[in-house]
Each structure stands twice: as C-alpha cells, then as structure tokens.
C-alpha cells in the first residue's frame, strides 16, 4: 500500500516537474507546479511528516501557486512567442551530464546504509516540529527571517522603476550604446 502510494505520487511529481519546464503557457507551468507540490505533500505523509504535509499544502499549494497565478493573470499572458530555444545547441551536453548525475545519485542512494531508526511516537506532529524549530534549530529559523527580509528588499529594488530620465542613461558597458 505504502509502496503504491509512493509510486503514484512520485510519478505524479515527476510528471508535474516535466510539465513546469515543458509547458508553453505560463498558466500551465503554474498548474503543473501545483501538481508537484501536491504530490510532494503526499510523499511527506508517507514519511510520517503530517505537519509538514499540511504546511506544504497550505503555504505552497495554497498561497504561493495562487500568487503565481495572480501574477500571470495580471501580466495578461500573451501567446508565447515562438523563438528558437536558447539552449538549442547544449542538448548534446545536457542530456549525458544530466543522465550521469541521475545515475550517480541513484547509485549513491541505493548504497545508503539500510534500515532506518526507530521513530519516536510524536515524530512529525506540530508539537515535535515546533520544539525542534525553537530549540535546536532556533538560529537557522531566525536567520531565515533575514533571508525573507532580503527577499522583500529584493522585490522592492527590482520592482522599482528605473531612475527618472533627468539622470543620464547609463549602462554597465560602453558596447551597449553602440
């Protein structure tokens, strides 16, 4: 039963992942991402991480993907331009290297020491996660708040309009104006 659940959700998350990069419409990419995140939540459930699974659905599927969809709709998604793929010539290198990475990682995972540890009964509950987060992992938890702050500042900086036209246009290289 567990193996079946794992197989189905793993296959779905893989399919979603392919969909994210292969879809031509941004909306389809966002919806594929929803599939990835949803099936990951199921994977967390099979790993007895219930709280994480719920968070995954609420935060990522519920908030983040919805935000993506809002942005896509606000941008009035135009039909995608048909341009030659920018990675066209690199497929010959990308496929073997990707396959090698996959093979190496799979082999490494198969060679991992077998047999897990016995989990305490409260593993994965809200209380257990909270206890870890606010004791052992307090410092990374607080530093993550700095990371989020940087994210906000980044949005403000990159979202601001370029300098007003009174400032002479500048570029980082002289070649640009040629």
């Amino acid at each position: 039963m567990e193996v079946l659940l794992f197989a189905v959700s793993a296959a779905l998350s893989l399919a979603g992942g392919v969909g994210v990069v292969a879809a031509r419409q941004p909306v389809h990419s966002a919806l594929s991402l929803l599939l990835v995140l949803g099936s990951l939540a199921v994977l967390y459930l099979t790993l007895a991480a219930e709280f994480l699974a719920v968070l995954q659905v609420i935060v990522y599927a519920g908030a983040i993907v919805v935000l993506f969809l809002f942005v896509i709709m606000l941008l009035h998604a135009r039909p995608p331009e048909s341009r030659p793929s920018p990675v066209g010539g690199q497929w010959g290198l990308a496929v073997p290297l990707g396959a090698a990475l996959w093979a190496g990682l799979s082999y490494a995972v198969l060679r991992l020491p077998a047999g897990g540890r016995e989990l305490p009964p409260e593993f994965g509950t809200t209380e257990a996660v909270g206890r870890e987060l606010f004791s052992r992992f307090l410092l990374p938890f607080e530093v993550a708040s700095l990371l989020l702050l940087v994210g906000i500042v980044a949005a403000v900086v990159l979202g601001s309009s370029p300098a007003p036209p009174s400032v002479p246009p500048r570029s980082a290289s002289g070649r640009e104006e040629a």
């Binding site: 990374p140 940087v150 980082a172």
Partner: peptide, 30 residues
C-alpha cells in the same frame, strides 16, 4: 557547524548578491 545551517547562511550570503548585481535598474546588462 551544521550543513543545514550552512545552507541557510549561504542563501543569506547569496541572495543579496543577486540583487546587488541587478541594482542598476536602467541597465540591461545589469
């Protein structure tokens, strides 16, 4: 002293650098 914390710290180091690289909003190259 922990790889997980190392990752969070690495992102705290890197994310501002990505933004600083694009700080010149009117330059396409930036």
């Amino acid at each position: 002293q922990d790889l997980l914390f190392l990752f969070v710290a690495l992102e705290t180091l890197s994310l501002p650098l990505y933004v600083l690289a694009g700080f010149a909003r009117d330059s396409h190259r930036s």
